[in-house]
Design a binder for these strands. Sequence first.
DNA 1: TCTTCATGTAGTAAATATACTACATTCAAC
DNA 2: GTTGAATGTAGTATATTTACTACATGAAGA
Lengths: 91, 91
Amino acid sequence: MKKQVADEQPQFYTRLPVLRAERGISRKELAELAGVHYQTIGYLERGEYSPSLVLALRIAAALAVPLDAVFSLTPFSSMADQLYNTEGEHR
Amino acid sequence: MKKQVADEQPQFYTRLPVLRAERGISRKELAELAGVHYQTIGYLERGEYSPSLVLALRIAAALAVPLDAVFSLTPFSSMADQLYNTEGEHR
DNA sequence: TCTTCATGTAGTAAATATACTACATTCAAC
DNA sequence: GTTGAATGTAGTATATTTACTACATGAAGA
């Protein structure tokens, strides 16, 4: 079975695709860095299920950012806005 | 089944007991703040299994700290050392 | 002592993460 | 136009998380 999480309210938000794009690596490469199956990264990016803590930490480490920069319970603002748009709050 | 994780190499490290002590709350209270069963907190503190990302994020939020302050793939140094002991590196 | 609270232990049942295999699609490059 | 890479979809099998219930223990206090 798959797809429990998708098309329901997301349980978490992720910047995985953006961060991966910035690093210029494919899912397969990230998967290898994190030591998981490459399909697993795809499932996470599509929100089809949410990772374990250990996997999330390994992914954050592979991307060299704190976990909170990759996953959050609340939506992320765009990093561009955070950097160049000084009005209002950022999360 | 329980206890797969314990007495093996820990998959993760946590400051949960310390942070909970600082906040002066019981496992039950933290569990209520995080919206989980109170036994679950106990399992995590004892390392009997590792949490899901979502649970870990909820716990960090309940403690009002970033996730990386509560859980890590590598051992934590004591917060006392981090604050008062300036020699060497900190992790 | 009796009670209560915090914690540990045990066991079951349900949900879900992850690995894996296979195949379809799109797109770029040659 | 064929190849290869990146991605999406699908399905199965296994391990593990989580909730829950119940009971044991130790400490603190009335």
